[in-house]
Design a protein around this nucleic acid. Structure first.
Lengths: 235, 235
DNA sequence: ACTATCTTCCATAGAACATTGGAGGATAGC
DNA sequence: GCTATCCTCCAATGTTCTATGGAAGATAGT
């Protein structure tokens, strides 16, 4: 009544183990964080190590694991090594893993709320589709009634941002609120759905008496939706 | 120049570790095989253990891991425990993981070919979209010029199959080739893109002097595409 | 109640993983 | 050629994971 194929199960086991090799790479928080950072743009080992708060040796080892799993690859750039995601499908995989975990595991949702600390100030959001519709054909420049604010570290902004977005890293925002026009709605975005920057930014704006609206998703999802991306400095 | 947010990194680490908990569950070949089986329909521990060729204790332990990771859940049915996927998003995650691994890792592609052994006989395929178009509005019954053959174990056929499909498990196929009409094209499918049954079936048909065409994907992808599913016995 | 079946819990031995310091390779600039 | 920078490889640590028997819990039928 059940299937019984012992003889060629060697090849079968090898195949599933091969898939598991890639799965295993997703089984470590530091590695997921590295993937999340790499989804924002290519980076060298040292910068990644500092960003995740781990030693260079450890980070390098993790990157080797990701590389062997086929999730990232590297190229040399002078004295340093630049890592990047193997493709957009890897970003999709990361996003889906997080969504599935969040959907089916209370513990994840709890950790998510502890980190993002959603509250009244950060409650209103706009969706990417909504924003695209609002910007209309003129996606290259902020529409008059809407300023798009990128609060990621400058480095990530330079590596690709929503066309027309203004860059003010979240740790400079409190001091630079006045740089923002006060006659337009401010839509804030950061790395993605699970990044705390936009939440923090909206709170900072609220403290300064300004209202910011959080984009429900971030750059990761923007890229996955294949919307146009602008590179380099503009603000 | 780089971001430096040590203070609230506890919550951040907790969140990424929470995601990693789900990723970790995908890091074992036996567990991936269990997910693959569960994507075909709910099953009890004993059947799963026999299908993956592992002990009941081991299988139960793996199922606990999958459960804690939010990927499956269980309900009691009399004396036995039925496990099932937490949702279609889990099947999506499994499919995407395999596709990413296959796309970016030569080792996986090699293992895949060792297991599926694609050759001249199994070369021609049809896509699901193609089949749906061919069956047209009359998806409930095989169109006259096309027989859809399900070669999975009967149990899985009963738990859901392509409407109108005929069930002949692959290990009975050699003896039952004559059950198939010889005036219609035979489209063979099994569990999914990485299941060997349809490959084997096409070879068996070729040995019997009949031509079968493999459906490029299987039941997993059929369900993910949200095509209608028929339950119970029909053949 | 008693028994049979199915499953989970517990304890354990062996394998694999994460992290770290130090050695060694590769590249750029002097 | 020499030095500085950045990264990877190696070895050693403690921790976690995998697989497996045997005991114990839960349910159905007699």
């Amino acid at each position: 009544m059940d299937d019984l194929r012992a003889p060629l199960s060697d090849a079968k086991i090898a195949l599933y183990d091969a898939f598991a090799g890639t799965g295993k790479a997703l089984g470590n928080g530091t590695r997921l964080e590295l993937l999340d950072l790499l989804a924002q743009g290519d980076r060298n080992v040292d910068a990644l190590a500092r960003a995740v708060g781990a030693g260079v040796t450890t980070t390098s080892a993790h990157l080797q694991v990701l590389k062997r799993a086929g999730l990232v690859n590297s190229r040399r750039d002078g004295v340093q090594m630049l890592y990047r995601l193997s493709g957009p499908d890897v970003a999709h995989l990361l996003a889906l893993l997080r969504r599935v975990a969040d959907a089916h595991r209370a513990e994840v949702t709890r950790a998510r709320n502890d980190y993002l600390r959603p509250d009244a100030a950060t409650h209103g959001t706009r969706s990417i589709d909504d924003l695209v519709r609002d910007l209309g054909g003129d996606i290259e420049a902020s529409a008059p009634h809407c300023t798009v604010l990128d609060v990621r570290p400058r480095e990530e902004y330079l590596a690709g941002h929503i066309p027309g977005a203004v860059s003010i890293p979240v740790d400079e925002l409190a001091a630079r609120v006045s740089d923002l026009p006060d006659d337009a709605e401010v839509v804030v975005y950061c790395r993605g759905e699970y990044c705390a920057f936009a939440y923090d930014a909206v709170r900072i704006l609220a403290d300064a008496g300004r209202r910011g609206v959080r984009l429900a998703d971030g750059m990761l999802e923007w890229r996955l939706a294949e919307h146009p991306v602008e590179f380099g400095a503009a603000s």
